[in-house]
Computed example of a mutant assay.
Amino acid sequence: MNDTIIQEIQDKYNEFSSSERELADFFLHNREKIDFSAQNIAKMNYVSEATVSRFSQRLGYQGYREFIFVYERFLDQEEIKFDLLTQNVLFTYKDLLNQTYSLIDEEQIRRIVLMLNNSNYVYIYGKGNSGLCAREFKMRFMRLGLHVESVVDTHLMKMNSVLMDPKSVVIAISMSGQNLVQYLEKAKERGAKTIMITALPSDKMFEVCDEVLVSASIEGLDVGNVISPQFPALVLMDIIYSHFLNKGFAKKQKLLEDTLTYIKE
């Protein structure tokens, strides 16, 4: 019955008088626990207490007290649903972190950091949500003195990939693993180091890339559709960032402090 009270109000809405519709609108949109006495509800909605009683009876209740008893139970149920949704989201993030912990290879992270330290230029490829990660990667690592550029347009990826040399590193971010391997392949032919960050690695990636960094996947999780698709890639970025900062810490920390100070000025 708690689940249907809103539907009951909606079904009867066209049968209500104008004053009863004022009450209907209130109960349809309210989700707060307040003083639900007939006197207070009538005052809040500028109707009479008789209208409050009549409204309840039109919905099939003996009176307002029976109606408000069911309505308050509905609000309790809504609070429980909210709590469960919050818990599900937090548990999902926890699951993603656990996946990352099981997938991470410290030696691989060190190899990637070495590539970055030995590079003249680093290019981060990404489209859509992965493009947002590419921009974040650029903003964070350039503060540590890395010559890095984000490339989020496929036309520019094509042109950029043929301009690589052995001192270049290309990192492609694609959670689905689609459509970016071809650009890494061309960069590899030019001698560049190539890295793929993905949740769905393929045999082709391992052929083309020096490193395939596998991220956690949000697919199959209970509330995966409400989890930011960038989250797994951003976690890996933070890990790489931490190792990169630690390699030559004093110099990079000074650069970081200088850039942050200048930004604040």
Rank of each mutant, 00 (worst) to 15 (best):
E257F: 13
I263N: 03
R111S: 11
V223Q: 00
E66K: 12
E106Q: 12
D25N: 15
I6N: 07
I112L: 08
V212C: 07
R135G: 02
Y183A: 08
A134E: 02
K33D: 12
A233G: 05
V235G: 02
L245M: 11
M139W: 06
G128D: 05
Y123Q: 03
G63H: 12
V113I: 10
Q108L: 04
H155F: 12
N120F: 01
T194K: 09
T194W: 08
K188H: 15
K43M: 07
N120C: 01
T261A: 14
F55E: 03
L260I: 15
K264M: 09
E257N: 10
V181F: 04
V169I: 06
I240L: 15
I5Y: 01
F55H: 03
H155C: 05
K247Y: 14
E20V: 01
N118G: 01
L184D: 11
Q10K: 12
P201S: 11
K158N: 09
S18L: 14
I227V: 15
V152I: 09
E72Y: 01
E78F: 00
H29Y: 12
H29K: 14
L28G: 02
Q77H: 09
F36C: 09
S19V: 07
F91N: 15
L245H: 04
I34W: 04
D83N: 09
M164T: 06
Y71N: 04
T4R: 14
E211Y: 15
T198C: 07
K158Y: 08
